[in-house]
Design a binder for these strands. Structure first.
Lengths: 139, 139
DNA sequence: TTCATATTTGAACTCATTACAAATATTAAA
DNA sequence: TTTAATATTTGTAATGAGTTCAAATATGAA
């Protein structure tokens, strides 16, 4: 919880209860949640919270670089704490998103062909190991 | 135009006028268009075409693997002919999407950590070379 | 306390995409 | 050629993520 407060302090973001709760959720749940998932969980604890606040906060965190968006599904944005750069795998069958640790030669670069890099996105999509095994045993 | 018909024949897709026109657009315009861009252009030539047909056709092409979706902007899907695998750069200032030729060690792989790969997405976002130069000269 | 500013809230809105049923075109059988 | 079955297209309505915006609330300084 102290770590989270520091993240906000470092970026001069006022640590309101809502913002702290959203960041705390992301720290505890590494499930690449949607806004709806964060909202549904937080509204249990903070009945007055609004979806707009979740959007506002996440957009602010993204601007400051402490939260990273994932565009992997194509239908809604997923969110992740910007800790270490890593790739992702989306299973098109069960919907689960896996973290991948890939030794990508561009992870530490900040320019490419003269363009200035702000975000890097490495996605794979397909059928995950677990679903492949389930499908095989059901055949 | 013959090439395009072959692509559809290979996948047993009936080459209707609408489908051919959509594929033809993608072959001639390498601008990673949205559905709206494709529709606006085609409706000039085919006044009766509907957006739903553009969506239907592109979804069919994607299933068959002859068109690849780009989720790079986060707000709407961009489309590309599935010719050679390559990475993309989105300029957050001018909105242009650049093709990148990157020697990625995973381009030819079809599994990763036991997961079966169907799609690979490599995106970079930031400020493009052209915008950087404009910004500098205006300072 | 009072005023100014920042944040949150909720309703209305935009826009991409899908669902669906009617209309049209195509193909095969009689 | 007719008829019937199937595939495709069309247009409207619905869905759902995300934004806009003004009112309400909280915060902080004078």
């Amino acid at each position: 919880m102290n770590e989270i407060k520091k993240m906000l302090d470092n970026e001069n973001i006022k640590p309101t209860y809502e913002r702290l709760s959203i960041l705390q959720y992301l720290e505890k749940n590494h499930n690449h949640p949607t806004v709806a998932m964060i909202y549904e969980e937080l509204v249990k604890k903070i009945p007055t919270i609004s979806k707009t606040t979740v959007y506002n906060s996440l957009n602010l965190f993204m601007e400051k670089g402490i939260v990273a968006p994932l565009y992997i599904t194509g239908s809604e944005v997923r969110y992740d704490l910007s800790t270490s750069q890593h790739h992702h795998f989306l299973c098109e069958q069960c919907g689960k998103i896996y973290d991948l640790t890939i030794d990508c030669p561009y992870l530490n670069k900040n320019t490419i062909e003269g363009h200035q890099i702000k975000q890097k996105h490495g996605y794979f999509r397909g059928i995950c190991k677990s679903c492949l095994e389930k499908d095989k045993s059901q055949k």
